[in-house]
Design a protein around this nucleic acid. Structure first.
Lengths: 136, 136
DNA sequence: TTGATTGCAAACAATTTGCAATACT
DNA sequence: AGTATTGCAAATTGTTTGCAATCAA
């Protein structure tokens, strides 16, 4: 039965992401960071620990945009049911509490038969600062 | 200088996507479809033709959500961007053409200063079939 | 003790690249 | 003819898996 034992490797991976807050790390980066701290851990174990944390909902996975890139993982900011918007430039993450989002979700259900999973959806785009920088 | 010659392989790949309309194909699927039509073409060439069409803006690329999956490509219908909804259960991808999505996007811009990038955003959730299956 | 976890090495799969043969103009 | 394109095979890379050793309970 999985998850029966508590190990220092599992704990270390979880602790690393907790420490990093909203930062997005690849599995490789996590492995490097832990190794740099002197922890003896294999890359395979890092992958497995991350996979588990994702299943538990503690981490969120961002698919790599370009082929050859690695997936990025981030502490799941909150599991509350509301949408998140994420700046593709600076990585900033914001929470969307508004009627319009609720209304849009309802529209998807009613007219498209699509049940939006807010916990898994992240809207990508440019935040105000990055958008204005880009215009220059 | 690239793009100097017109070849039947390049034409066939472009024609295939044109024929398929809004359908999303993987490179492998495109390769299979072309081979089935009796065209002699290598998989490498399919990859290269698709890459070129993406650079030209003729195709749009969707990054694979799950590791191990392949990227999907779709005819870019005259730059008209729209949101996509993806079923986390069966993987089905659908295109969202509706006023409500446009209105929601506008709302994000006006009230949240967030410029939604429809090309990079995929709404996750359950499609009609999978949702009804789950209810049982 | 018992079964879960680790970690190396090997396996995998999508994609890219080297390079000689071939096709386009 | 000259060069862009093709396509096989080999290389790359992120990730997963087999399996024997190790560790937690």
């Amino acid at each position: 039965m999985r998850g029966a034992y508590q190990t220092k490797q599992q704990d270390a991976v979880a602790a690393l992401f907790n420490r990093r807050g909203e930062e997005c790390l690849t599995a490789e980066e996590a492995y490097q960071a832990l190794s740099a701290r002197g922890l003896e851990i294999g890359k395979t174990t890092v992958y497995r620990a991350i996979a588990r944390l994702c299943e538990e909902g503690a981490l969120r996975r961002y698919a790599p945009q370009d082929s050859g890139d690695a997936a990025r993982y981030q502490l799941n900011p909150c599991r509350e049911s509301h949408l998140h918007i994420r700046c593709v430039q600076c990585g900033a993450l914001a929470h969307l509490h508004c009627e319009e989002a609720e209304a849009f979700k309802k529209h998807l259900t009613l007219h498209h038969g699509f049940e939006l999973d807010e916990g898994q959806t992240v809207l990508s785009g440019l935040c105000e600062q990055c958008a204005s920088k880009k215009r220059k």
